[in-house]
């Protein structure tokens, strides 16, 4: 626990520094030839979107590890990561919406990308609710892990939605090493912000993992107490 706290502090410091640099670069980025300064919304939107997918990938891995190896650590990490992923996907949807209104002319469109991203948020919230729906911690962990693994079907759908179907959302700007459609001075802030958000994700998952682990210890002590006194 103590070592985890130290790591978390280090990651936290690095996150703050990188976020500050990224924010400064984002606000200094040149105007886009079409979107003017609304292109700066991209620097919060794209890294949030990437993180909501990455965190889900992590939750899926942790869920498999839990069911397979019966590792409680994996379950704690899965539980800790879900609300973080939910926050990332909520910000993705909201920031996209705020960009969409002036650019597309609509807050929302039921196209494949937006719809599959909304489904991801529903899955995250559903996983949080399902875990709270059991009195027994072990049952909650197993049910949540199974549902999380089923939900992973949404990941390829989100990723390929802009390729498989015609969408209002633009196609991927990074499509293999040969195709990067974000030009130099607009790209650098995006890379810095992406790195910052990866650290932010790690920080929030570590922090939440400590909360979950501590809460479980308190709960087991309380149960013991109730048992001894009852």
């Amino acid at each position: 626990m103590q070592r985890l706290a130290k790591w978390q502090l280090l990651v936290g410091l690095a996150t703050v520094i990188l976020l500050a640099v990224g924010l400064w670069m984002s606000l200094a980025a040149p105007l886009d030839f079409q979107q003017g300064n609304s292109v700066r919304i991209l620097y919060a939107h794209v890294p949030s979107a990437k993180m909501s997918l990455l965190i889900y990938l992590f939750v899926t891995g942790a869920s498999i590890a839990f069911l397979w190896k019966k590792s409680e650590t994996a379950d704690i990490l899965a539980e800790a990561a879900v609300p973080v992923g939910a926050a990332f996907s909520a910000v993705t949807l909201a920031s996209g919406s705020i960009w969409g209104k002036p650019m597309w002319g609509a807050w929302w469109a039921w196209d494949a990308r937006l719809t599959s991203m909304l489904v991801l948020l529903i899955i995250y919230v559903g996983l949080m609710a399902l875990r709270n729906a059991f009195d027994d911690q072990g049952k909650a962990a197993r049910a949540t892990a199974v549902l999380a693994i089923i939900g992973a079907i949404d990941l390829p759908i989100i990723h390929y939605s802009v390729t498989w179907w015609r969408t209002l959302h633009q196609p991927a700007s990074f499509d293999g090493p040969g195709k990067i459609s974000v030009q130099g001075p607009l790209l650098t802030p995006l890379l810095v912000m992406s790195a910052a958000f990866i650290l932010l994700g790690i920080y929030l998952v570590l922090l939440n993992a400590r909360v979950v682990a501590t809460r479980r210890r308190v709960e087991s002590l309380e149960d013991e107490e109730a048992w001894n006194h009852g």
């Binding site: 105007l31 979107q35 003017g36 300064n37 609304s38 919060a44 920031s95 002036p102």
Partner: peptide
């Protein structure tokens, strides 16, 4: 070019 600062700040 319109100024989208309020939208950027909202995000």
């Amino acid at each position: 070019t319109p100024d989208y600062t309020p939208y950027v700040m909202a995000v």
